[in-house]
């Protein structure tokens, strides 16, 4: 009995009229991951297969892709545990396709930059720096590994190209919670937009798909609550200011 698994891998090169899937056979060991399989296929069967990866341990976020229709990090997705004799591998959705399994992360990163993502706590890296007030201990940034999986899983990102997206909105909410020098009104201005926090339709797919427990949908809801609160306060403050 052969333990071989067929990998149906999405293929596309710049200039191709359409994408297609190529099939490759791979015999996985008990701990082989999808990323192991893909790198082996590239090494031994087709060196033109392109994919992004780096760390092999769910830290860098570069190997986000769709395996059997669901967004995962290929590096921590065990082939045997998928339980299928055929494994379909596709690039992430809702991002510009570059080649095979590679998508352009530019729009995704630009959105994170726009909300002044608090990427890494400076207090971790600067000797003698204090933690933000009210924070008992420094933690690494919000666990977001910037894999783009949330955008791929989001039904709204599928139709609204201007949507700020789950990761950027979660980062915006972190700026609100812990400004750390960030420009809170500016960031909230970005989020308080029809294409920002209000575009979300509460499917929670981003939070379910997130491999790093960022819970973007939860952050978007907290962000909305805060935006509503700010608007009420502004409304109530207006007559007071007018009376001065």
């Amino acid at each position: 009995m052969s333990d071989s698994v067929t990998f149906r891998v999405h293929r596309f090169k710049q200039g191709d009229a359409a994408s297609h899937h190529d099939s490759f056979e791979f015999e996985p060991g008990p701990r082989s991951t999808v990323l192991d399989a893909l790198t082996a296929i590239r090494r031994t069967q087709d060196p033109t297969l392109t994919l992004r990866h780096s760390c092999f341990h769910a830290s860098c976020g570069t190997c986000g892709m769709k395996v059997n229709g669901r967004e995962v990090l290929a590096c921590v997705t065990n082939v045997r545990e998928l339980g299928t004799g055929e494994v379909t591998v596709d690039p992430l959705d809702n991002a510009p396709l570059v080649s095979d399994l590679v998508v352009d992360m530019g729009p995704f990163f630009a959105r994170l930059n726009a909300v002044e993502r608090p990427l890494v706590r400076e207090s971790e890296l600067v000797p003698g720096a204090h933690t933000a007030s009210g924070i008992p201990q420094p933690l690494r940034y919000e666990d977001c590994i910037e894999c783009g999986i949330c955008i791929s899983a989001c039904p709204i990102a599928a139709t609204d190209p201007e949507y700020l997206g789950p990761a950027a909105l979660a980062a915006a909410d972190r700026v609100r919670e812990e400004p750390r020098g960030g420009d809170v009104p500016f960031v909230l201005g970005l989020a308080d937009d029809p294409h920002g926090a209000w575009r979300c339709h509460v499917a929670f797919e981003c939070s379910e798909a997130c491999p790093s427990n960022v819970d973007p949908a939860g952050h978007i809801m907290q962000l909305r609550r805060s935006l509503i609160g700010r608007r009420w306060r502004a409304l109530l403050a207006q007559p007071v200011e007018a009376g001065r």
Partner: peptide, 17 residues
């Protein structure tokens, strides 16, 4: 912001999403 509506983003799923 990079124009996400450019033709290169043809993989946006649309209503299928």
């Amino acid at each position: 912001l990079p124009d996400a509506t450019a033709p290169s983003s043809a993989r946006r799923r649309g209503v299928a999403g």
